[in-house]
Amino acid sequence: MPDAIRSEAHEAHAEANAEGRAVDRAAIAESIGELLPALIAKLGATGLAELEVRQDALRIRLRRPVDGSASRDRRSTDRTDRADRGDRPGRAGSAASGTSHPIGLSAVGPGRDGREGGARDDGRAVATSPAVGIFQPRSSIRAGTRVRAGDRIGTVDMLGVPQDVVAPSDGVVGANLVEPGDAVEYGQGLVVIEFASATPGADPAGSPVAAAAAPAMTDR
């Protein structure tokens, strides 16, 4: 994702939703680069909770955090860390020296979520990598898509064999923590799944979330 999205992370939660396969990726990236800073400023200056613009096949929606609480802030920062990690292809896990190293690594594994103890409480879960390899999200899955626990949302290619990345819970697809084509390690956080209850404005086009909870994934 362009830097613009990260830079506004502490102010607003942004979702860029591109529709229409024919639209050139680079063109979208450029538009986002130009539009986002202006839109963020706009949202910040108004009292609006949500702002959406459409241009050709491109749709950008900015949403203010529900309550602007610390947990939201922490989440955003966390996401920035993870996105940074994803920006270094061929490098999974940080090269930090000394004792901080394993802690840096922990940030991407399921163990960290367990230690935080609040990963599910703050309205999100993270789909983690089932293997060491190259991540590709499923083309039909994008930010805002509603998913159920166990849904396949992408793959990690390990020597040509795709391993399924599955949604750990029911919810709505949020941010990608790594880019398509990035090298990822086993257990690394890949895609945020926002719990449906915490995201009232989620994409109405997505499939409805079942009333009954789906069985939990057994991957953990």
């Binding site: 292809p89 061929g90 490098r91 999974a92 896990g93 090269a95 190293h101 690594l105 594994g109 293997a131 060491v132 390899g133 190259i134 390990m158 020597l159 064999v161 090298a183 990822v184 390690e185 086993y186 257990g187 690394q188």
Partner: peptide, 28 residues
């Protein structure tokens, strides 16, 4: 200098997994 997690505790899916080990070598 650099470390990469290749699988769960079960050695068959980590240290004994040829594909996990080779994939890790390639991506790093």
């Amino acid at each position: 200098d650099e470390a990469i997690c290749i699988g769960p505790a079960d050695a068959k899916r980590s240290y004994l997994s040829a594909s996990a080990v080779i994939s890790a070598a390639l991506v790093t």
